[in-house]
Design a protein around this nucleic acid. Structure first.
Lengths: 225, 225, 225, 225
DNA sequence: TATGAATGAGACTTCATTCAT
DNA sequence: GATGAATGAAGTCTCATTCAT
């Protein structure tokens, strides 16, 4: 987290923790905030709730974050870094492997990513109406730049599998896939029953496989050689 | 809307409008509230915003609704009535028709339903974290009773097409289908480009068809006879 | 008070009172604010103090004023109007009258003006270091545009009495006179002893007379004819 | 600065710096505080601002001063010592010299005094409404004991020049003179233009001379012999 | 001792709700 | 009944002061 992440419009940035104690506290605050934002949403979350959950005083929050928005921006930035890593792994993926394997891996890695409270919090806020200025890194209407980026990379991947796929179709497929796994991830996440969760993830694989097979199924691997 | 719908815990219900003018006013308030709730979410919406949008005074809202929550409950009840109608049509559907047609009709009727600002508002709040007590009619964890009902009926439908389908699998298919169209409906709704919207709905049909075909595809029609 | 007076940067203006009750309340708030600002200064004054003094709820203040600054801006605007009236009277003064009379009248009218709690409050804040943005109508470094205007008119008056007076000297005389009566007015105002107050005002007349006589004394009246 | 000067009601005094490094630090803090108090006033000044300006940590301030008020009290005490010195010089002044010279010297020595950031700060706070307990050494309503003392000595001086002057008149003259030079000193101080500053100080001399001449002009020197 | 993080009372402001006109 | 002003609890944020390192 660099200083820019602590900057909020019209309000001076705060100092970064120099001592170890301070860094731990910032960590606790961020995790507490992510939990509360996920539970009740950004608007309804109160800074006092966050302080209580982080076992800290309300004033301590404002030593590191100029305002409530800045807390979210710090979460956004962490999310940003993670999504870039995961996106890169997709670019590097071997396109010659069976589609079922690729989808399986994709889902697993996205799921792990999704399992991080901070990323989950950021993704969740995207699904909701949000206050202006909530997202700074991303600026798409309802999608983040990051997600657009990620989707664009997915579209690239499809085209590498099947070069005869038009760009428009490829992006459409990627957009639909995106919505699909995001919504099933949330359903899986909300389910407290581990078996049900696994069942949903298994269905997600089937769903994506049967949807994508006509366009980038394994027969296109040969065509590529 | 009967009187019970205007009842909120610990707070006296308000009188119902007797005159035509009053009824129109309630209508305007409900529509305004639905719009605002959809735009900014229940928590962030203010009663003043609703009054302004409805071109009425803040005091008038409290003549018909005991509090902010009661406004939402009235929307919920309207939604309730509509969803029951649409669910019934599914029960009455002819299971012997081609799957593609059935899906096409289902999507169309759900889309029309979704196009209603009030239902859209209620569904939307479901996707978000919400204040306790926001939903009174439904009490499922994160899903409404209504939606569970609707899903259960969809599961019934699948089993009528293919009686060899287990109940569990059938309900799983229905749950997945539910999440899928809901998330793509929202994507379609948020898109301001009509062509893009149509493209998304078309993809949704493809997606559901290829997912469901192995379980309730047209070959099961013959088996039924 | 027009709407612009209720406008504060970055914050929406508030509605103007439409009912008589509201107008009275705005009046009470402004007077209470002027008193408190005079007593403890703008920074140290709290909105709650103002509400208490005005016998109103804190929320009522914010119905008419978007923030604490806007309250002061409304006072500033009232002051603005008054100072323009008084300045005009100086322009219209008969320059052929004895200097002692002119000074006597000037002091009396300024004193009456100064006796108004609102103007006194605004003038008082000018003498203190103040938060950026406290003054909107005037923008001189530590002097208001209004006061500059007023001083400029005083300089004009001196030159009309004695056309051989250079502009620079004339403005210097006016500046010195300005500081002099302002500081003695404050001393007189703070004195609770009416006799002492009168004594101070009498000394002020003497002081100004003996200072100005060499430049615009009565002998210049003949020269003018 | 003795220990009593660091004592603030209800709060334990702090230790005095024993080492040279500590004394320098206290000095830096006092100067920084004087600057900030002058710039924004006592209420609006924050202890953090003072620490920053003094290039020290906030904790260090509280090692030497029990609270914010105590910082000001230390400034007040420094001012106290200086004003006593200058007042004494007035007592010792030769009353037989020409009035113009006396006024010239008086203004010059007061101006030098005024040029000290600490004294200027204390005088400045006097002109403003201040929190209760801000001044401990002086307790006049809006004037310090020090200033009363100083004024009283000025009144003595007038009576020595002109023994027929009543005590009341003499004190009134002294009070008026006091307000006059104080307000012109502030005007001169705030002016960034050195020429304008000199012009104001020159006018101040004229002003005082023409005001005081009838009462303690040079003709009274002979009468004294 | 010096540093700067921790604390929490209190300031400013919002907004659901009540009430006077 | 309709209007919009009045109310005050609760939220965000500041800052004097304390405390751990």
């Amino acid at each position: 987290m660099n200083n820019s992440s602590l900057f909020s419009p019209e309000r001076p940035p705060r100092r970064q923790p120099k001592q170890k104690r301070g860094k731990e506290r910032v960590r606790k605050i961020l995790l507490a905030a992510a939990e509360i934002f996920t539970e009740v949403g950004y608007s309804a979350a109160t800074t006092q709730q966050i302080a209580d959950r982080a076992n800290t005083a309300i004033g301590s929050i404002y030593q590191f974050f100029p305002d409530k928005l800045a807390i979210f921006h710090a979460l956004e930035e962490e999310h940003h870094k993670k999504i870039q890593t995961i996106s890169q792994s997709m670019v590097d993926a071997d396109i010659h492997r069976p589609l079922a394997d690729l989808i399986g891996e994709l889902i697993e890695s996205y799921w792990n990513f999704f399992a991080d409270p901070i990323s989950r919090c950021v993704i969740f806020q995207h699904l909701q109406p949000h206050v202006p200025g909530l997202f700074v890194i991303c600026e798409g209407e309802n999608e983040t730049l990051l997600e657009n980026q990620s989707r664009s990379m997915l579209a690239d991947f499809y085209q590498r599998r099947n070069p005869s796929l038009s760009r428009d179709k490829s992006e459409l497929l990627s957009e639909v896939a995106h919505h699909t796994y995001r919504s099933l991830f949330f359903a899986a996440f909300k389910s407290n029953n581990p078996e049900h969760r696994q069942a949903l993830l298994a269905e997600l694989k089937d769903l994506l496989y049967s949807y994508l097979d006509p366009y980038i199924g394994d027969r296109f691997i040969k065509a590529d050689r």
